[in-house]
């Protein structure tokens, strides 16, 4: 039976402190009677102790500070993006509210004027629809032109 061999394998792991309680007990029981293995365990413990006591290399302070600064910038950028996204969603909702609001509001402000110009109820909504669409088109065209100019500027900067 290779009990001794198996124990020898477990000795290293015991010195490393990673044995289960059951295995640990097994080994300790064996050690009570075996001198050779006890001596061996001491060697391993010495090695483990040496590893634990290795001097800790330290990073240079300038490296740490640069890492800190850059990581903080990146962190705030990430959260900026997330914040921006929620703001934009909110603004799109707002823009829709504004658009839909302009229809009845204009109607209200002009009172019965539009009613005189356009005889039927449905016609009024067509006028408003045309108005809103043209507004969106004009705004959209302005937006496209503006972003093109902006991108050009960014690239040259």
């Amino acid at each position: 039976m290779n009990g001794h061999e198996k124990i020898r394998e477990l000795l290293t792991l015991l010195a490393a402190g990673v044995l289960e309680p059951r295995e640990e007990k097994q080994v300790l029981d064996h050690l009570r009677t075996c001198e050779a293995c006890s001596a061996e365990l001491e060697d391993w413990k010495l090695l483990a102790g040496g590893l634990r006591r290795l001097p800790t290399p330290q990073p240079r302070a300038v490296v740490v500070e640069r890492a800190r600064a850059q990581a903080q910038i990146r962190l705030s950028e990430e959260f900026e993006h997330r914040w921006n996204r929620s703001v934009i969603v909110g603004l799109i909702v707002f823009a829709w509210v504004l658009t839909l609001l302009s229809w009845p509001l204009v109607r209200l402000l002009t009172g019965g004027l539009l009613g005189l110009l356009v005889p039927g109820f449905s016609h009024a909504w067509i006028v408003f629809g045309a108005f809103t669409t043209s507004v969106w088109l004009a705004g959209g065209a302005a937006a496209v032109l503006l972003s093109m100019q902006h991108r050009r500027e960014r690239r040259l900067a």
Binding site: I88, L91, F94, V135, G139, A142, A143, L146
Partner: peptide, 27 residues
């Protein structure tokens, strides 16, 4: 001015989409 005059709040949306990241302090 763009935010004011481009109607239906599109100018404002445009601003938020295109705005630059915040300025950084020199170390």
């Amino acid at each position: 001015l763009l935010a004011v005059f481009i109607p239906d709040g599109i100018g404002i949306i445009l601003y938020f989409v295109l705005r630059d990241p915040p300025m950084r302090a020199c170390p």
